[in-house]
Structure formats: C-alpha cells, structure tokens
Amino acid sequence: MIFEALKPEVETIIKQDSRSTNERLLNICELLEKHISYYNWVGFYFKNGAKNELKLGPYVGEPTDHTIIPFGKGICGQVAVSNENFIVPDVSAQDNYIACSITVKAEIVIPIFVNGKNIGQIDIDSNTPNPFTKEDEHFLEFVCNQVSNLLSN
C-alpha cells in the first residue's frame, strides 16, 4: 500500500534539520498531495497563540480564504474542540461545514498533540466522494505523530 511506502519519506522530511519547520511541513503536504491521488488539498492548521482559533499553516492546493477558523466552526474547528479525528465522507451532509471549494466532496481532519495538548491538525480535502478509509486515518495519525515529534523538539 502507498501509505507504507510514504512513511519512511515522511520520517526523512522530519529529520531534515537544515530546513525550517514550515519548510518541512510544506514538504509533507507536497508529498501527500503528489502521491495520493484523492488528496486534493493538504494543509496544517495550528492554534493561534492564546486565541480560541486556528491559523492556517503550510498547505498545498487551491488558495483558501479560511486562514483563521474559530474553534467549533467547520470540521477543523470542531476537531480543535473535540480532540478527535473527524472523517467526513460527504461534506454536503454536514451542517457545520465551511466550504473551501465547490469541488470538495469529502474531508478528513486529524489532530496533532504535543505533550497531551491539541496544538493543531492536518486537514485534507478530496474532490472524490467518500474516499477515506481506516488506512488513511491510521497513516495520517502516523504523520501527525511525526509532526508532533518535530514540534516538541
């Protein structure tokens, strides 16, 4: 499976001390978007200081107006509050969804924890209806764990 092949590449990116944190996060976004056909927008959101909102970090895909997301709003904002993974097979069925593009059909958001605190998340949009599986979820948990290690150093 593609996920197993990508894990060592994610680990290699994380270990690139000569690059900034944001460069490494962007490289992870680029890697996932390039190699997983149904990952059409890949990005990171992080807690914005002491505010109860998320701020957009590195991403690849269509530009978004959603650079700040209040906690509780949209899928990302809900994950910031719930601290749980959120897989949305059909975004049109979600009442509390922030549309980034009319082409987006599904979304998956996985939180990133550092020292037990939810400090951000990886957010992936897909233009394919219901593409995300448990394998995606487990792989993205791995990615978030790697990012957590990077951010806690």
Rank of each mutant, 00 (worst) to 15 (best):
N22S: 14
P63K: 12
W41T: 02
D65L: 13
F46K: 14
I28E: 02
V109W: 03
V143F: 01
E9P: 01
R19V: 06
V88I: 13
N127R: 13
N149Y: 09
P111D: 12
L150N: 04
P111Y: 09
E62A: 10
V60C: 02
E4S: 14
N22W: 09
T67H: 10
K55C: 10
P63D: 11
Y38G: 02
Y59H: 05
V109G: 05
Q146W: 01
Y59F: 15
N127E: 15
S37C: 02
G43P: 11
N149H: 12
I102A: 07
N22V: 13
V42T: 07
Q146D: 01
T128L: 14
E33N: 11
S148H: 11
I110V: 15
P58H: 01
F46M: 12
P63H: 06
Y38W: 06
D65A: 13
D65V: 07
F71G: 12
E62P: 03
K73D: 05
E23P: 03
L25K: 10
G61V: 00
L151Q: 00
K15G: 09
I36R: 10
I69M: 08
W41R: 12
T67I: 14
I68N: 04
W41Y: 08
S20A: 05
Y45R: 09
E53L: 08
I75S: 03
E53Q: 15
L54V: 05
N96Y: 03
